[in-house]
Amino acid sequence: MSIIKVKTKLDEYRYRAKSADINELSGRTNRSDITHFVNGEIAKRMEFKQGDIVVDIGCGDGTLLEIAESEGSFGIGILPSEEEVTRVRDRFLTNSDRIKIEQGLASKTELPDEVANKVVCNGVFLLDEEDVNLALKEISRITKPNSFVYIGELCFRDETEGKNYGDSILKWLLWVLWNQGGGEFLSRLKQTLRAIFTTEQMLILPKSHYYCTPEEFISRAKSFGLNINEHFPHKSISLNNEVIKSSSRQDYIFIKV
Score class of each variant (00 low, 15 high):
D33C: 07
M46I: 05
Q50P: 02
F232H: 12
G162D: 09
D131A: 15
A17S: 15
N229K: 15
G72V: 09
E130C: 07
R45E: 09
I22M: 00
Q250R: 15
E82V: 03
K44V: 11
P145F: 12
E114F: 00
S2V: 08
I53A: 06
V38N: 00
Y165R: 06
L79T: 06
S247W: 09
K171I: 05
K44L: 09
I151T: 08
L154R: 02
I101K: 02
I255L: 12
I255M: 10
E242M: 11
E161S: 10
W178Y: 10
L239P: 12
G123C: 12
V120M: 02
S238P: 02
F197D: 10
T213P: 01
F232L: 10
F185R: 01
A43E: 04
L174S: 14
C121F: 04
H36Y: 13
S19E: 06
C59F: 08
G58A: 02
L10Y: 09
K256P: 00
K108V: 01
T160M: 15
Y13V: 05
L65T: 01
P145K: 14
Q191P: 05
Y15K: 14
T160D: 14
G75I: 06
Q250D: 07
I99W: 00
V88W: 00
E129G: 00
Q180S: 15
V54Q: 04
D113V: 08
I253E: 03
D167L: 02
E161W: 00
L25P: 02
G27Q: 10
T29W: 13
N117D: 14
Y15L: 13
L10A: 08
G60Y: 04
S246W: 01
E69V: 10
I218L: 07
V243H: 06
A135D: 05
T94A: 07
I228P: 05
Y165M: 03
V149N: 01
P214T: 05
D251C: 13
G182I: 14
A68C: 10
F125D: 03
F148E: 15
F37V: 03
R45S: 06
S96G: 04
I142P: 01
I196A: 14
L189Q: 10
G40N: 12
L170V: 15
L127E: 13
